[in-house]
Design a protein around this nucleic acid. Structure first.
Lengths: 331, 331
DNA sequence: CTGAAAGCGCTAACAC
DNA sequence: GTGTTAGCGCTTTCAG
C-alpha cells in the first residue's frame, strides 16, 4: 500500500515550508509564480489531494451536506436528490444520504450523525410519525441550517420549502369541476402529514365554494396496494364514480392497476388525475393529467436557499413553489 | 450560536484529563466505574458528540463509504442504495452519494472526492462510457477497496458483484421458446456496456442451441422513448411478432407504452417479458413476467463483501448473484 | 514573498 | 486508574 501524499511531503521535496506549499496550491496572491509552478507540478506528479479531515478540522467547515428522506423509491425523492447532488458537486460539496424509511428513530439517529460529522447544513423531508422537533431546534442553535422540504412541520422552526399545496389542490379541484365531473372518488395520503391535511382542506374548500361539496368522496390510502383496494371496493359499491383524484403517484399507480384489471376505459368510463412529479403519468395511455410537484425544482430551490444561508445571507423562512397543471388525456 | 461541546471541555469541568474522559466514553477496561459514570452523565447533559473529523484524522478511518451510480431514477439503483444505506447505518457507517449521470468525467471527479474524504471503501456502477480505469487501480493501491456492482468492467480490477447475467438471459430465452414464441422482438440496452454484451451473447446462444436463431430480431434501445419508437416501427413493418423481450425496465416501459397506444392485447396478441427489479412489472395487468435482478439483494451482498474487506478478510474477486424467473401473465 | 509556530479535537503510547 | 504528551494534515496569523 502506497500512502497518500501530504503537504509536508511536498514541502520537504521542494525545500519549502508547508505554509508556502499550501498557499501555492490555492493561488494565494503573494506567491512567486515560479514557486507556484513548481508546487503545482510536483503536486500533480505525486497525485496530491488534500486530506479533507485535516481541512475540516482546521477550518471547521466540512463541505458536506446531509439529506434525510423517507424513501428513495421511485416516486419523487429520486429526482429531488439527483438535483441536489448535481448542484452540490458543482459547488464542491458532498452529500451524505440517509433514508429514514418513515421511522422517526432512524431520522433522529441520522440527525446525530450529521451533527458528529459537522455537516454544514441538512435537508429533511419528515417521516410520517415525527413528533418531537427538539433536536432540529438544537441544530439550528448550533448554526447548522436545517431546511425542511416537501413534508415540512407546521411548527415555526428552521426553513421550509414546499409546494403551494393549497393552490395545487385547488387547481385540481377546479379542473375536475370544470370538466363536469360530478362523482369524484378523492384519494389522499397519510392523514398525519401536514402536507396531506393542507391539500385536503383546500381541495374540499374549492368544492364548497362552488356548492359542490357533495360531489366528492374522500378516502385515505397509505400505499400502492391500499389504493388499489380502495378503488376496487369503491367501484363495487354501485356508486357510479365519474372521476378519481389521486394525491400522489403511489395512489395513482394503485388506482390504475385496478382500472386496468377491470378494463375500465379512461376517460370514457371514468376520468383520473393526480399530483405528481410527472414520470408515472406519462407511462399510461392516455397520459394522465396531473398537477406538477417537481422534485427537480424543489431540489434546486432548496440548494440555492442552503447556499445563501451558508454565505450568511438572510433568507425568508418559507418558500412556496408554484404548481402547474399538465394536461394528459385522462379526464 | 452555542459552540459544540468538546472532550477538553468535559475534562475541564470534571477535573480529569482528556485521555480519561475519552476512555470512559468508549468503555475502556481500566477505568473506575465511578469516573465512568460521572463522565457519561456530563456528556449526556451537555449533549456531547465526538467530532468525527478529529477522530478520522487521528485514526485514519473515516467510517464513510462512497457510492457512485449512473442515476437514481426509479429503475434499480433506488432499491440498491436503500439496502446499502440501511446496512451502513446499522454498522455506524455513513454514505456519500454521487450520481454520475452516465458521464465518466463526473465519475472521475466523484472518485477524487472519495479519495480526499478518505472514504473507507467505494461502490461503483460504471457509467456507460467509462474507458479509463487507471484511477480505480490507484485507489486499490491505496488500500481503498473498490467494489463494482451491476455494471462491472471486464478488466480484472477491484471486486465485482453482479448478476449471473449469462444465466439470466438464457433463462429468458428458454422461457420464450418453451412458450412456443417464434418471432421475438428482442430489445437490449446500450451496446457499450459489458453487461449488455454478456446478456445478448448468451441470449442468442440459447436460441442457437435449439436451432431457433432465426426466431429473434435484435435491437438496441437507450431509453424509454427510444424503446417505444423501436417497438412502434417494428410493429408497422408487417412482421408479425409474437413476443417482445426487454432487457431492462426502461425498455419495458417504452414498449408497453406503444402496446397500450396500439391497443394490443397481452398476452393474446403478443407476449412480453423483461429483466427487472420487480416493481414495474407489477404495475401492469396482466403483470409482466420477468427475470429478477434485485437491487436489494445486490446491495446487501455488496455491503457484506465490503465489511469483510474492511476487516481484512480475504474475499473472492467476483460474486455472481443468481436470478430467478417470476411469472406474471404476460407471455 | 516565505517561514515558524500554534492549534483544530481527538487517540494512544508511555509514564506513574 | 489516570495523566502527560505527541501528533494526525492542514490553515493561518505573525514575523521577517
Amino acid at each position: 500500500m502506497k500512502t497518500a501524499t501530504t503537504l509536508y511531503e511536498l514541502a520537504k521535496r521542494l525545500n519549502l515550508s508547508t505554509a508556502t506549499v499550501s498557499r501555492a496550491l490555492k493561488n494565494h496572491p503573494n506567491i512567486a509564480p515560479e514557486t507556484k509552478k513548481r508546487v503545482l507540478e510536483l503536486a500533480r506528479a505525486l497525485d496530491y489531494e488534500p486530506n479533507a479531515y485535516a481541512v475540516s478540522l482546521r477550518t471547521s467547515s466540512s463541505k458536506e451536506l446531509g439529506i434525510i428522506v423517507p424513501s428513495l423509491t421511485g416516486f419523487f425523492y429520486d429526482s429531488f436528490i439527483t438535483a441536489v447532488e448535481r448542484l452540490c458537486r458543482e459547488e464542491g460539496y458532498s452529500l451524505l444520504i440517509f433514508v429514514s424509511g418513515d421511522s422517526s428513530e432512524a431520522e433522529l439517529a441520522s440527525l446525530k450523525v450529521c451533527k458528529q460529522r459537522k455537516v454544514d447544513g441538512i435537508f429533511v423531508s419528515l417521516s410520517t410519525n415525527t413528533a418531537d422537533l427538539a433536536y432540529f431546534a438544537k441544530l439550528n442553535d448550533q448554526d447548522i441550517p436545517v431546511i425542511f422540504v416537501d413534508r415540512v412541520p407546521k411548527e415555526n422552526i428552521g426553513y421550509k420549502i414546499c409546494f403551494e399545496d393549497e393552490r395545487a389542490a385547488e387547481l385540481s379541484a377546479n379542473y375536475l369541476m370544470d370538466k363536469g365531473r360530478k362523482k369524484i372518488l378523492s384519494l389522499f395520503g397519510d392523514d398525519h402529514l401536514s402536507i396531506t391535511r393542507k391539500r385536503l382542506k383546500s381541495y374540499v374548500r374549492a368544492f364548497e365554494v362552488r356548492g359542490m361539496q357533495d360531489n366528492i368522496h374522500i378516502q385515505h390510502a397509505l400505499g400502492v396496494k391500499e389504493s388499489s383496494e380502495i378503488v376496487k371496493d369503491a367501484l363495487s359499491t354501485g356508486t357510479r364514480y365519474d372521476a378519481i383524484f389521486c394525491m400522489t403517484d403511489e395512489i395513482l399507480i394503485g388506482a390504475m392497476k385496478t382500472l386496468q384489471v377491470l378494463k375500465i376505459k379512461i376517460p370514457q368510463d371514468i376520468g383520473i388525475m393526480c399530483m405528481s412529479n410527472g414520470f408515472f403519468p406519462g407511462l399510461y395511455h392516455p397520459e394522465i393529467t396531473y398537477v406538477e410537484t417537481s422534485g427537480k425544482k424543489l431540489g434546486e430551490t432548496a440548494l440555492n436557499h442552503m447556499f445563501a444561508l451558508l454565505k450568511k445571507d438572510k433568507r425568508e423562512n418559507q418558500v412556496k413553489l408554484e404548481s402547474i397543471l399538465v394536461e394528459g388525456g385522462s379526464v
